[in-house]
Amino acid sequence: MGWKRKDLLSLQDLEAAEIRDVLDTAGSMKEIATREIKKVPTLRGKTVVNLFFEASTRTRTSFEIAGKWLSADVVNFSASGSSAEKGESLLDTAKNIEAMSPDVVVVRHKASGAPALLARHLRCAVVNAGDGAHEHPTQGLLDLLTIREKKGHLEGLSVAIVGDITHSRVARSDIHGMKKMGITVTVAGPPTLIPPACQELGVKVSHRLEEAIAHADVIVMLRLQHERMESGLIPSLREYSRVWGLSLDKLKHCRPDVLIMHPGPVNRGVELSPEVADSRYSVILDQVTNGVAVRMAVLYLLAGSQPA
């Protein structure tokens, strides 16, 4: 099918066929990474601006590599040292960047809805690289690509997402993407980290780790931010890791072919024990590799398939 969207803002917006389209395209992009010369001319003469208002190393680097392998000119704009620190509004910053004629703007912002706001005001394509606790669609897509590669299919699988669901944009993108692809999703965490009316997202909610992971084909462990303790949502990291951390011991009751995923960066010893992070179940580095392929696919579909 032909790609028709101007922007990629969320997986909630996408149809299953569009998700499949991105995954298929990403599959063929992966081959480029195996070449000696990792570059194709697809986006030559196109400009991609990484507009990151929130610290991020891996997502920004991943987009940067993706753009460069496709021969786009990639420019990084980070909020520190920029006009955003001098009190310029988000819209003004964006309009200034647009005046330099980029083809794609990749946005990371702490405010949910910020990419949607930019998409309404900018003529160029906008890619959401994570907005507040809303969505992180390319993470959702790379998770799907990783699962499809490892399991051979998506339909009918069962995934457990464990940890701080309330504050996680990864959880929301995973939930929407996985549901659309026919996956059964269970979310699990202490009740203080499960958002209100969460089951209305179409997921099962569990407050017991063992129950949530017992039959899962895939377990997605989320990063726990330390400030959750200060805001009184959990008593201590120690207790969290004992109750909600994944250890080899707890994995004993899981399926022998279970996959462990994590969007990174991992808090070793908190949500994942080091043994689990390095175990044969872990596909965390495959996720990182697939991240580049998925972002190449997204940049290509948004900027490359338009008539020049």
Binding site: Q12, S112, G113, D131, G132, A133, H134, E135, T166, R169, R172, P195, P196, A197, C198, E200, L201
Partner: peptide, 12 residues
């Protein structure tokens, strides 16, 4: 705070 805040990722 409700399903919409959950869906939008805004604090309710």
């Amino acid at each position: 705070e409700g399903f919409v805040s959950t869906d939008l990722g805004l604090t309710g």
